[in-house]
Amino acid sequence: MEYGEIKIPKQMISKIEARLEETGFESVDKYVTFVLEEVIKEVEDEEPEEVFSEEDEEKVKGRLRALGYLD
């Protein structure tokens, strides 16, 4: 796996370091990566996809009725 570097306030790093022992993470890197992964998962799970396909379905239903396929 390839890694990049990001910057976060030193204050935050200290806070995380203080928490490390009780959380069981081996390093600040690992802690932060985990937290971010969880957040992104949540955001992605919202699935705007669903909304669009429902809209599409309604639209198509309407069209198919107009064309005589559905009544």
Binding site: F52, S53, E55, D56, E57, K59, V60, R63, L67
Partner: peptide, 8 residues
């Protein structure tokens, strides 16, 4: 195309 569907 309408999403995954097709219209005439």
């Amino acid at each position: 195309q309408i999403g995954i569907f097709g219209d005439h």
